[in-house]
C-alpha cells in the first residue's frame, strides 16, 4: 500500500489536520452534528439495523414458526451447495457484461451524438428505455425472446429459421441475452451521465488540442476521455453495484432456470427466503451478497477516488 501511495497523498491529510479542525468552535461542531444527524439516523435505522438483524437471523434455522440456533450451518450449506458455484459464475457474468456493455455503449452514444445536429433526437430514443421499470422491460423482452416470440418469428420470416433458438431456455445463452436486455434498458443512465461529463469539459481545452492538430479519435482518446474520468468512476461504480444486485429481469424472464442454471445471488436469496420459507438460509445469502457488494464498491471507489 505504501509503495503505491505517492508522497502527495500522505501530505494532504496532514495539512488538513493542521488547518481544519483547529478553527472549529464547539458550537460549529454541534451544528455539523445536528445537520448530519438526520441522515446518519435514517441510514442507521433503515439500513444498518435491518442488516444487523439479518446477520443475526442467518445463524438460525427458521421456518417462520420456530427458530433454532445453528451457528454457521447456513453458510456452510450455502458454500458447499452444488448450485453456489453456478450462482457466483452468473453473478460474475452479470458484472462483466453490464460493465462492458452499458458503460462502453453509453460512452460511444454520448460522445457520438454530443455535437450532432439531431443528436438530441437520437439520444432521446436511446435513453427512453431507461424510463421503463425492470419489470416492464422484462415483459417486453419476454415477448421477443420466448420460443414462439418475435425474434424467432422474425428469423423464420427472413429465411434464417436455422438460427432459431430457445433464447431463454439454455444456459449460458439465456444469461447473455438477459444481459443484452438489461443493457438496452440500462444504457440510458450511462449516456446521461457521460453527457454531463462531456458538457463539463472546458471548451478551451478542446480548442487548444485542436490548435495543436488533434482531431477525431486522437482528440477523443487523449483529451476527451481523460477528462471524463471522474464521471466514468461514477458510471462504472453504479453499474457494478446494480449488476451484483440483478434480480427483476432474471426473475421475470427465466425465473433463474432452467433448474437454477441462470440464478444470481439475489435470486438465490429470494428463493431460499420466499419460495422455500427458509428464512435463516435466505438471510445468509443476503449477508454474503451485502458483503460482496460493499467490498467491491469500497475497494473500487477507494482506488479510483484516490487515483483522482
Amino acid at each position: 500500500m505504501t509503495v503505491l501511495t505517492p508522497a502527495a497523498e500522505v501530505e494532504r491529510p496532514a495539512s488538513v489536520r493542521a488547518t481544519g479542525p483547529a478553527r472549529r468552535s464547539p458550537r460549529s461542531v454541534l451544528a455539523i452534528a445536528l445537520f448530519l444527524a438526520p441522515a446518519v439516523g435514517l441510514v442507521a435505522l433503515l439500513m444498518i439495523a435491518p442488516f444487523v438483524d439479518t446477520a443475526y437471523r442467518s445463524f438460525f434455522a427458521d421456518n417462520g414458526f420456530t427458530r433454532t440456533f445453528v451457528g454457521l450451518d447456513n453458510y456452510v450449506t450455502l458454500f458447499t451447495s452444488a448450485g453456489f458455484g453456478q450462482t457466483l459464475l452468473n453473478t460474475l457474468m452479470w458484472v462483466a457484461g453490464t460493465l462492458a456493455l452499458p458503460v462502453l455503449i453509453g460512452l460511444l452514444i454520448a460522445a457520438g451524438t454530443h455535437e450532432l445536429r439531431w443528436g438530441a433526437v437520437a439520444r432521446f430514443a436511446l435513453v427512453l428505455p431507461y424510463a421503463l421499470s425492470g419489470a416492464a422491460t422484462a415483459v417486453v423482452w419476454m415477448f421477443v425472446l420466448r420460443d414462439d416470440g418475435a425474434l424467432n418469428a422474425a428469423l423464420a420470416a427472413v429465411g434464417l429459421g436455422g438460427l432459431e433458438q430457445g433464447w431463454l431456455l439454455e444456459w449460458p445463452l439465456n444469461t447473455v441475452v438477459m444481459i443484452v436486455a438489461s443493457t438496452w434498458q440500462g444504457t440510458g443512465v450511462a449516456v446521461i451521465l457521460f453527457l454531463i461529463g462531456l458538457q463539463a469539459i472546458p471548451p478551451s481545452t478542446i480548442e487548444a488540442a485542436k490548435l495543436d492538430g488533434a482531431t477525431g479519435f486522437r482528440l477523443f482518446w487523449h483529451i476527451t476521455l481523460p477528462q471524463l474520468r471522474p464521471i466514468t468512476v461514477v458510471v462504472v461504480g453504479i453499474s457494478v453495484v446494480n449488476s451484483l444486485k440483478t434480480f427483476d429481469i432474471v426473475w421475470l424472464l427465466s425465473k433463474g432456470g432452467p433448474g437454477t442454471a441462470s440464478e444470481t445471488l439475489a435470486l438465490t436469496m429470494y428463493r431460499e427466503t420466499f419460495t422455500l420459507a427458509r428464512y435463516g438460509a435466505g438471510a445468509a445469502v443476503a449477508v454474503v451478497l451485502t458483503v460482496v457488494v460493499v467490498a467491491v464498491s469500497w475497494i473500487y471507489l477507494r482506488r479510483q477516488l484516490r487515483a483522482n
Partner: peptide, 16 residues
Amino acid sequence: PVLVEGNVQDLSAFMV
C-alpha cells in the same frame, strides 16, 4: 414443500 419446489425446478430443466 421444500422438496417439491426443488424438484419442480429440476423437472422444468428436463422439459427444456
